[in-house]
Each structure stands twice: as structure tokens, then as C-alpha cells.
Nucleic acid binder design. Structure first.
Lengths: 206, 206
DNA sequence: TAGATTGTTAATCGATTAACAATC
DNA sequence: TAGATTGTTAATCGATTAACAATC
């Protein structure tokens, strides 16, 4: 299948989560406007996204919840699953491990890395913590393809280099500085300072 | 001044941080292409953003670092400063407090809220923790205008209601569900599951 | 049938990039 | 002068929304 637009991919992830809540409540069909309300977007956008993934609803009945969940799974998930590591196991790293651990069968956090001797060798939510200099080795052993970077600003660039050299294919960067990666490595940057300053600007201006 | 585009506001926050690092290294001028490299964007975009905020560089010399920092401050920061609270002081809430505390003079985290009795009454990085049912009172007393929401999914909707009722003007939602707020309240939603699933999709497809 | 809903194309909007004039 | 750089308009690109046909 052709690559979907970024924003559609983001919404598919959110549709799935909303749909799984519906499924848990035994709701079997859902209208585009209902799904739209759950995500606070428009019904047209929902229908367009669903059109893009090639699914069809039933007129006057809406979309079959479980079918749509399965289809989104086929699109978003890798058949064999992907392994993820967290680099930097401070508060933010632990929040991520705690949140993701066990949430998805096809996306699992299998290792953490840190340089604090007190943390190395420990497990957090059953995820073992290794020293950063073993990153390359463990990434190969455990076949890890995505790294979540939650280290302090000062070491972010250097650690990012280590991660890229280890052959990681995607990095999610929560460190408060932009990092540099080759073109063939996916990079998502999420900067909490920027989020907060942006909110402050729009609150001030409104 | 007229409202700036969202993306420009985000980049201004990042320009400022990069510029402050330059300033700390006693670098006094910076070219658009240097600033662009630090953020991994194009020089044209840097120049266009700087044009939008009405600043001018010097031909062949670039932009004066400290002047630009000051101007971005005038645009992003409120003169009187804004107060912020964190609602839900788990790992993620603590990560945010630890990271922001003392970072900005015009944007301070002044309170945390939680319902866990072990946390109430404690301070974390000098930020006091109150029970959620005192939110409205404390928000008024401390003149808080922005809330960062880091509570579990199950209670997010309800807590969001409490926050809106207390008169908060901006919410940054890190809870893994979309929340509903009136039109006049700024809402930024940052969903870590979506970030990770998006990365997985593009890694898989690349 | 009338109303509600899906599916899809075309128009619009917002953001980025290309092109280039100005000038040190 | 030639080359490097800023500043700005116009073109392009990507995403959303409006409009509407189809149909249960």
C-alpha cells in the first residue's frame, strides 16, 4: 500500500484507541460523526481517512468497529512486531515504560539504557536496564528498531550518534534539543518546552 | 501584533533556545543558515520567520544573537508572567516539574495536584502538591492560567472539566485520550502512543 | 418519500519552498 | 567586481473543508 499522509497515520492511531474503547463497551457500529466527536475533528475528515485506507462502511449503519480495528492494525502494525528501547531512564523514561509496557502486542519495549550505576542491572516493569556502551550489542541481540530518547540535553547529540550507529531505524526524541540523523532514519521530535511556550503564547494572545 | 502562525511560534521557541546556547558561548552574530542547521530546517524558513516578527539582520553579518533573544522574549513571554500547574504528579508530571522548574522567569510551575494521599502535602522540587478538589481555589489564589494534564486515561475527562471550570485558559494534555474544552480555552494534545505508533509505521514503510 | 448517512471530487486554506532583487 | 547574504514575493505542496452525488 502507498504511504499514507502523516496526519492520517496519527489519526489512525487515535481512531484505533477510541474504537477499542467502543469495542470494550460492546458497541458494534459507529458513525463517522460519533468517531469525529471522540477525537474532536470533523466527520468528513474521518470519512476521508477511512476512504484512504480502503475501508467502506454501511450506509445508515456506519462502520463495523471490530473490522475497522483489525484493518487499522494491518496498516499500522508490523506483522512480526517491532522492538523498542528507552534511552535514559529518568522520570520521563520511566513514565514511557510504565505507560507502554504490555499495551501493544506488536510493539514492545524490551530494553532501557542509562549511565547511572544505580540504575544499571535493575529492572523497571520487567524491562532490564543496561549501560549505554552496550547499546549497540543489545540492539543487535534484541533486534531493536526504534529508540525513545529521554536523556539530558547535554548528552543528547552524542547518544543520538550511538543510537544511529547501532542501526536503529527510528528515533523519538524527547530531549530538549534537536538532533541530527541520516535521511533514512525516521525522526520524531517532541519538545515539551516548545509545547508549553506555544500554549503560553496563544493564551496570552487570545 | 497580529497573531503569528502556529508553526512559526513553535520555531521561535526553538530559535530562542538555540540562540541562548550561542549566547552562552559568546557568539554574537549568527547567519540564517547556521540557525537553520541547529534546528534542521532551511535557511529560507529562518529568514521568513524572522521577517514575520519584524526583525532585520545585517547583510553579511547575520542576526545579532542577544537582540534576537530579547525580541523573541517580547513576543512569546507575557510581561507579567504566567503561572502553570501540573495535574497528576506521577512519573510524567514529575519529569515536567523537574525539567521546567526555574527554566523560564516568565513561566513558572507554582502548584501540582494529585489525589494520592501519599503525595498530597509533599513538595516536589519546591512545588507543593494539593488534592484535586482544591484546584479551583488554588488556581484563583495563585492566578494560574495554564494546566498540564498528566493523569491516567480513566479520569482525564473529569479532571479536564474541573480544570476548565476553574477558569484555566490553556491546557496541555498528555493523557492518552482526547479531551473536550470550550473554544476559548487553548488546547494542545500530545499523545505518546500516537508518536510511537507513527514512528513504527514510517519505520516499517521506509 | 424524506432524511440521514457514506464516499469522493473540487475548492480552499495554511505552510513551505523557489526564485530573485537588493546590497555589503 | 564577484560572492555571500538578507528580505520578500510568487509558486508549490500538503492538509482540510465544502459541496454534492449516491443510496438505504
Amino acid at each position: 500500500m502507498k504511504m499514507l499522509p502523516e496526519k492520517t497515520v496519527e489519526r489512525l492511531s487515535q481512531y484505533r484507541r477510541a474504537l477499542m474503547l467502543c469495542s470494550a463497551k460492546e458497541k458494534q457500529h459507529i458513525y463517522s460523526h460519533e468517531l469525529a466527536n471522540l477525537l474532536h475533528i470533523t466527520p468528513v475528515q474521518v470519512r476521508r481517512d477511512i476512504m484512504l485506507i480502503g475501508y467502506s462502511g454501511t450506509l445508515r449503519k456506519g462502520y463495523a468497529v471490530d473490522e475497522l480495528i483489525d484493518l487499522i492494525g494491518k496498516i499500522l502494525d508490523s506483522e512480526e512486531g517491532l522492538n523498542v528501547c528507552v534511552v535514559g531512564i529518568g522520570n520521563l523514561g520511566r513514565a514511557l515504560v510504565k505507560y507502554f509496557k504490555g499495551k501493544r502486542t506488536r510493539l514492545s519495549i524490551v530494553a532501557a539504557f542509562d549511565n547511572n550505576p544505580e540504575k544499571i542491572g535493575n529492572e523497571y516493569k520487567k524491562v532490564p536496564c543496561y549501560p549505554v556502551d552496550q547499546l549497540s550489542k543489545i540492539v543487535k541481540e534484541e533486534d531493536i528498531s526504534i529508540a525513545i530518547l529521554t536523556v539530558p540535553r547535554q548528552v543528547a547529540a552524542q547518544v543520538a550518534g550511538t543510537i544511529v550507529d547501532a542501526g536503529i531505524k527510528g528515533i523519538i526524541n524527547y530531549a530538549p534539543i534537536s538532533i541530527n540523523v541520516p535521511d533514512d532514519v525516521y525522526l520524531g521530535e517532541y519538545d515539551m518546552t516548545t509545547s508549553l511556550e506555544k500554549a503560553a503564547y496563544f493564551v496570552k494572545m487570545s
